[in-house]
Design a protein around this nucleic acid. Structure first.
Lengths: 165, 165
DNA sequence: GGTTTATGTCAGCCTTGTTGACTTTCCAAG
DNA sequence: CTTGGAAAGTCAACAAGGCTGACATAAACC
């Protein structure tokens, strides 16, 4: 009856099993964001700025609308963040050539540096967790997370997944 | 060189591998909170209320101080949430018998009902993700999450893990 | 009796989400 | 060619939920 110990017969999932996963997700997410949050704490920026920098770095020349869809916030919410990043010279907004309504977003040297330092901190923790859990665990981790996403998010995740940087 | 395809030799973790994990975590957490958020959207409550209800349900008679430590917020922040839950008759605060300074928190019938409906929604998604990913993946998922936590959070997670409800 | 601890509260601030209203630009149907 | 609608972006105002700081009360501890 005690599947939790063996990990072999989890086709029958007790509420207890599932609840542990929920709590793990809660506590782990705190750790996940802790290092970048600490770095950003000193500056005038927050987690929203980190997310914008991450995905602009990830998809250079992305439009505001693309970024909106990936981040899952309103354009007004994103705009406030972008405005300060642009004002501080971390992000450059270039008017689209084909469609002048669009703004294409790029990191400046300064922006790329901050993104790098945030990313380094977060990657270090993720890497340490991967090492601690072992190679097999990493596959399972990503499989469960992927299955947990909403359909729209999964599509975005997968299309990002293809692109290497 | 392409360990990502085989998943066998992940002792050498490329930045790319790790970055995918980071993005998976970001997108998955949105899915993780989506269902309770939707339910709470209709009421005057938010994610903070959900978290309080969850952990009061999980550790009945917990004190305010305990809850503070688990949630990782300030007492002013928690107090705002608790005040509304108590005012609306979802949570009951009982003066401690041994130590009359303490308040022991309990869910009322009404509070337990709301907690149940939020929990049902979140468990359903987590259960579906577990099933989709398969039994082996679940172990890896929890192992990586646990390794990602801060030390304090891991201790709290583990002491909760023992307790069955 | 003085100090520490647990809790609660008030005030004020910040980040980051929201909606609503607006401008500029583009495109397509007439 | 014009005009009306859709799309991209911006500005303003508001709400949730974090935060700090200061302070009050009661109980416990020494």
């Amino acid at each position: 009856m005690d599947q939790s110990k063996t990990g072999e017969t989890l086709l029958f999932l007790t509420d207890d099993q599932v609840r542990k996963g929920i709590e793990a997700m809660f506590f782990a997410y705190r750790g996940f964001t802790a290092d970048p949050d600490r770095i950003l704490g000193g500056m005038d920026y927050g987690r929203a700025h980190h997310r914008a920098l991450h995905f602009i770095h990830r998809s250079p020349a992305t439009t505001v609308n693309n970024l909106l869809a990936v981040l899952g916030v309103t354009k007004q919410s994103l705009n406030r963040v972008l405005r300060s990043l642009i004002a501080d010279g971390l992000v450059e907004s270039r008017v689209g050539q084909a469609d002048k309504r669009e703004r294409h977003l790029h990191l400046t040297k300064k922006g790329a540096e901050l993104e790098r330092s945030l990313s380094d901190a977060q990657r270090a923790r993720m890497r340490a967790a991967y090492r601690a859990a072992g190679p097999g665990a990493v596959q399972g981790f990503r499989q469960v997370l992927e299955a947990m996403m909403d359909d729209g998010a999964r599509r975005q995740y997968q299309s990002l997944k293809e692109t290497s940087i």
